[in-house]
């Protein structure tokens, strides 16, 4: 058993056995942020990234084709929904599922850009995300095996159910692998792609799942 209600006292818990959804001040705050940025992805037009032509004073604005726009927007919205699910779920297996979905969507958002350098970055990120599913789902399986439940509420309310520290570390490792997109910000290749509002969803979802896993590790 971890610390009691680190995210505040839940307002509402919707239970279906072990499957549950809960809204605490913390999860609601993160959920609202995911919702707001998903709405931005739905409504906003993409930016027209300004690039400089080397060897002169000229510059040009990149255009996003309609086909690319549609796919990236779809992926950004799917990423937003997956992030919202990961924020409010109280079930560890669903949590890992949503996290892996976030990872897939992040790869999709970047990989849709028809640029060799950007696709190279997406490919590398995809490999990391793929590898991270092993510790991620492994952690969920180990928690089920050691405690007999995947309900976060059950895990924090029952003092006899202790999750081993190494399993928590595996869970964090898995989330880090799936949500590594912000670290790819350091790669110039990724920013050859026009970014807003789609690349923002990569950063936002990764940060949100990082924030949520902190709460999860504290409560289980």
């Amino acid at each position: 058993m971890g610390m009691d209600n680190p995210g505040g006292i839940p307002y509402f818990i919707l239970e279906f056995g072990d499957e549950l959804v809960y809204f605490s001040p913390y999860t609601v705050s993160l959920f609202i942020l995911a919702l707001v940025f998903t709405l931005f992805a739905v409504i906003a037009k993409p930016e027209r990234q300004v690039d400089i032509v080397f060897g002169g004073d000229a510059f040009y604005a990149k255009e996003t084709s309609l086909a690319e726009l549609k796919f990236r927007r779809f992926m950004a919205i799917a990423c937003g929904f997956a992030s919202m699910g990961a924020m409010v779920t109280g079930d560890l297996f669903n949590f890992t599922l949503f996290i892996s979905l976030v990872g897939i969507c992040n790869v999709g958002i970047v990989a849709a850009v028809k640029n060799r350098h950007v696709q190279n970055a997406a490919y590398q990120y995809g490999i990391v995300a793929l590898s991270a599913t092993v510790p991620l789902f492994g952690a969920a399986a180990l928690i089920a095996a050691t405690t007999g439940t995947l309900s976060m509420v059950e895990l924090w309310s029952n003092a006899s159910l202790a999750v081993p520290l190494v399993v928590k570390a595996l869970l964090v490792l898995g989330v880090m692998g799936e949500g590594m997109a912000p670290f790819y910000a350091a790669k110039a290749e990724m920013f050859r792609a026009p970014g807003a509002p789609y690349v923002i969803m990569c950063s936002l979802s990764s940060l949100l799942i990082f924030l949520r896993v902190i709460e999860v590790v504290l409560v289980i």
């Binding site: 930016e47 807003a196 509002p197 950063s203």
Partner: peptide, 25 residues
């Protein structure tokens, strides 16, 4: 309230800065 929420908001400020930067082109 919970200090964890303020910690979350502080981290989300990064996304806001990122949003400011990327939105203009």
């Amino acid at each position: 309230g919970s200090i964890l929420i303020i910690f979350g908001i502080y981290m989300l400020h990064k996304i806001v800065e990122h949003g400011f930067g990327l939105s203009s082109g």
